[in-house]
C-alpha cells in the first residue's frame, strides 16, 4: 500500500489551470521531493493535499481509505497530515513553548504534552528560546519552530514547502540534518524545494512538475540526465 496517492488531480483558478491531471504515489517511509520552476503547481499540490484548495476533479487518498479532497483542513490534520508553509507560519503573539503546545494538536492529552514539547525543543535546538515570543525569533529560528510545530503531532504524512528558502548555508545544513532525522518507516515526507543540492541530500525520489503536469518521476540522478527536465531548468 501507499502512504499517499494523488489521482488525476486538476485544479483551476478562473481560466488558469494550475494542476492538469497530476498523479503520484508516495510510499510509507519515503522522502519525496517535488521540484519544478515557478508556477509549476507545486504549492497548489500541497494546498490540495492539506485541504486549503478544493480541486475541480481527481482524488487524494491517504492510506488507501480516506479521500482528503472531501475533508476539511482540520479533519485532514487530525488524520495525521501536517504542513509546513513556505512563508514561516508561526503564531507571533505566543511563546515558542505555546506554539509547540498548539502544534501537539487537540487530540494529545494534556498530560503527555510536556514530554512531547521537551523532545521537540531538543530536536529543533530551540530549548534556550522556549519562553521567547515567536514574533521575536530570527527567520531561521521561525523555520525550525514551524518544523517543530508540525513534528509535535508525530504526523504520518509531512508536507514541507521550501523549508530552506532564505536560509544561510549553515542553517540549510542544520535543516537538512533535521529532515533526515524525521525519516521513519511509518512516515512519508513530501518536500518542495528549489535547492537541488538540498534535494539530493534528503530525497529518495523526485517528481518534476512543469506547467501543472508531471514531467518526470524517478531518482534525482535520473532527473539530472533527463532531456526534458534539463530543457525546463535550462541546464541547471
Amino acid at each position: 500500500m501507499s502512504a499517499l496517492v494523488v489521482e488525476a488531480l486538476t485544479v483551476a483558478f478562473g481560466r488558469f489551470t494550475a494542476l492538469d491531471a497530476v498523479s503520484l504515489a508516495v510510499d510509507p517511509g519515503e522522502v519525496r521531493a517535488v521540484i519544478g520552476p515557478n508556477g509549476a503547481g507545486k504549492t497548489t499540490l500541497l494546498d490540495v493535499i492539506s485541504g486549503i484548495t478544493k480541486p475541480v476533479s481527481g482524488r487524494v487518498m491517504l492510506g488507501d481509505t480516506l479521500d482528503l479532497t472531501k475533508c476539511s483542513e482540520a479533519e485532514i490534520a487530525r488524520a495525521g497530515v501536517r504542513r509546513k508553509f513556505q512563508k514561516p507560519s508561526v503564531f507571533p503573539a505566543l511563546t515558542v513553548r505555546e506554539n509547540l503546545e498548539i502544534g501537539c494538536g487537540p487530540a494529545l492529552s494534556p498530560g503527555e504534552r510536556p514530554a512531547r514539547i521537551a523532545s521537540v525543543l531538543g530536536e529543533t535546538g530551540l530549548a534556550p528560546r522556549a519562553q521567547a515570543l515567536a514574533g521575536s525569533l530570527a527567520h531561521g529560528e521561525k523555520q525550525w519552530l514551524e518544523i517543530g510545530m508540525v513534528l509535535a503531532a508525530e504526523p504520518a504524512l509531512l508536507l514541507l514547502d521550501e523549508p530552506v528558502a532564505g536560509l544561510s548555508d549553515a542553517e540549510t545544513a542544520h535543516t537538512a540534518a533535521l529532515i533526515r532525522g524525521l525519516r521513519r518507516p511509518d512516515r512519508a515526507v513530501v518536500v518542495i524545494e528549489h535547492d537541488m543540492g538540498f534535494v539530493e541530500a534528503i530525497a529518495d525520489r523526485v517528481t518534476v512538475l512543469h506547467e501543472g503536469r508531471t514531467l518526470y518521476e524517478g531518482s534525482m540522478h535520473g532527473a539530472r540526465g533527463d532531456a526534458r527536465v534539463i530543457e525546463v531548468f535550462l541546464g541547471r
Binding site: 490534520a77 487530525r78 503564531f91 505566543l94 498548539i102 487537540p106 510545530m149
Partner: peptide, 24 residues
C-alpha cells in the same frame, strides 16, 4: 488558558491553526 492561546493563534493565522487539526 489554553483556549485563550488558541484564540490568539486563530487571530494571527487561522489557516495555520486549522492545518494543525483545530476546528477554528
Amino acid at each position: 488558558s489554553a483556549i485563550g492561546r488558541r484564540m490568539l493563534a486563530c487571530r494571527d493565522d487561522e489557516t495555520r491553526l486549522r492545518t494543525l487539526g483545530y476546528s477554528t
